[in-house]
Design a protein around this nucleic acid. Structure first.
Lengths: 211, 211, 211, 211
DNA sequence: CATGAATGAGAGTTCATTCAT
DNA sequence: TATGAATGAACTCTCATTCAT
């Protein structure tokens, strides 16, 4: 699931026009990759269409063969990145027997992903300003998946009782900030170590009476 | 935003030129207030200097009597907001006898602040793109304060052992996302309820064996 | 527009390349019809080749198999429309015994034509900017035909003496504006009524001593 | 009334922003004059804002200090030109004792104006495509003024009975086409001669029995 | 003959910043 | 200090036309 989704899938989830020839499909992929680089390095507003097309090695006009606007590629990219994180982390989570271990493993996987793709924060976070709907959708759907896991785990008796929605947002917030600090900004701890501390926290908390 | 800090403080924490006359101080105040509104409503890039000066009721040129650039007001504003959150939350935390209660109370206070000032996310988050140094500074110093509290609490035997830095970022992430979801985006839970669930999580985790 | 002229005639009056196969003739026909619609609805500058080809149900490239440029189809169309007006009005004029009646009948016929083809003004008038030569040719040849009729009528003693060229332009101007106002913009008078007033004007003028 | 209306009037009838300083008023006038030249020579679509500002000797940005768009200057210009024609022709008409003489004099005045300002056709006619509302307004209000004159003349017994609205459009059409052919396109007849033939036509028509 | 992706010059427009008044 | 007109670099986007398939 780590591998990039094929062109068909990309086209299905985004708004760009579907190419009818092989050459067209190649150009579209080049543009998407170039856009990821450009937005990742410079952010939405500093990025320019002309730079994207230069990176992709095509003419400016070709950009508009596939996208209607700068905003549209950006949205396509956010969805792409969002799907990539999910596809990277999900299998690592499901591989675990116990949900508490699974969440810890998920943290670690996310942190590793952040180290590999330091641009995700620039891209996803900027959606808050460029395309709020997609931004909200990204976090809301992520939280929904976490909550569903917690509900199931509770049914199986693996975790204590408590609002799964609130817990989901708390867990997601932890992940995001641990990923930012220890994945993107610094590597003064290994993903294992960070996840060990984080996992311990969500499993047993900080109350000394419980350890 | 709520109670405006006095001019002296503003001048101390930001880069704008200190006015020498009473008239100048009034103009500066008007500009800062107008900027807060404008950036809060539209975000950095959609906001315009000319709108800020119109809101403030002064001429465009006057803006540059007090600030060197659009970025500068924005930075001043981020610092301002950052200080406000801290000043709002800090006393609520220190009022608690036990650190675990204190953190839960901090969560609740932050959530309440977010409900009162829904624009803080727009302002602080956008700093990631407009003024990364100030953005990093905001979160780094906040995390440092949390870590210091955890260290002291550990010394007092109020919490278990564990990397205070990692824990600090985890706690901060929880706060931020709970504030976004339950403070800014929706009010389907009371701050007390959210903080109760969050507080329970960081105190005792989700392991059913420990509750 | 109404009855389409046969392919031979189109090829004769315009600059487009003559197709050699039946399939080619069909494509050309589709393109011309689509162009008439598109230019009529949107005008030259708002019209687009890609829309024309979409309406015609052919690929963009096929357009250039038959026309050298956007201007060329437009010119072809103007000539087409020009010929249609002439062919619609001419028989109505020649059917009259007296030239004064004939001119009144011509006015009415033109007005009726304008009601049926409200797009003629958009097409012919825009030629003033897109293809001035054809625009001038349209009006100059129309005026020439009117002048010839007046000359002949004068010879037959049906009208008084006076510069036939100046009179021709005056009559044509009347027709065009009556057609615009009472044919295209409004239908608050019947063509008969408009032509009755207009015919009376050119026959006997407005001097009360003469009526 | 031939003289250009003062800046205040221009500002009142159009949509551009009113300058607050003398320098601003001068710049606005330069832009309007430059726009008249540019649009007159090239037509709306071939004209460019950057050429207008170059002609005016100001920076591109200054254009947008006074107009919101290319369309807006154009509309301002059409209204300006429309007012100029009216102000040039009106006094010549009112100076006549008899309405039939007045209309002939009006024709002549219009033709003279067209010779002096050959660009009016390019500007007014192109409004049909760029700003249809203003185009229609120009002709409708002109026709209304003519009809009012005819009504009054009929009351005074100077002209025969007949729909003043239809007659007004007929007269206007004559004027416009005589102006185009003998004012702008050619000068093979003097304005007096054209107006004599035209005036005779509307006074007594072409019926030989009546001359 | 048909296709449709690729091209790129060139347009209109924005707005932070400057500076003469 | 205050004003607001002037500046112009830089951007996004259009679309007629070409040409390899």
């Amino acid at each position: 699931m780590t591998e990039k989704q094929d062109d068909t899938r990309v086209a299905a989830t985004s708004g760009e026009k579907t190419p009818k020839t092989a050459r067209g499909r190649r150009t579209l992929r080049q543009l998407l990759d170039a856009a990821a680089e450009e937005f990742g390095e410079k952010g939405f507003h500093e990025a320019s269409i002309s730079q994207i097309t230069q990176r992709a090695g095509v003419a400016i006009g070709s950009f508009y063969t596939y996208f209607d606007s700068k905003e549209e590629v950006f949205t396509a990219l956010v969805r792409d990145v969002s799907a990539q994180v999910r596809d990277f982390v999900a299998p690592r989570i499901s591989a675990q027997a116990n949900q508490l271990d699974a969440e810890r493993e998920g943290q670690q996987a996310f942190l590793e992903f952040a180290r590999l793709h330091k641009e995700i924060y620039r891209i996803v976070d900027e959606a808050e300003f460029v395309d709020p709907a997609t931004y909200r959708e990204h976090y809301t759907s992520t939280a929904r998946r976490i909550a569903a896991r917690l509900d199931a785990a509770y049914e199986r008796g693996e975790i204590s009782e408590g609002s799964s929605e609130i817990r989901a947002w708390a867990l997601m917030g932890m992940n995001v900030f641990l990923g930012l600090r220890f994945g993107v900004w610094g590597d003064d701890y290994t993903p294992e170590e960070v996840a060990r501390v984080g996992g311990e926290l969500i499993a047993r908390g900080m109350d000394p009476a419980r350890s």
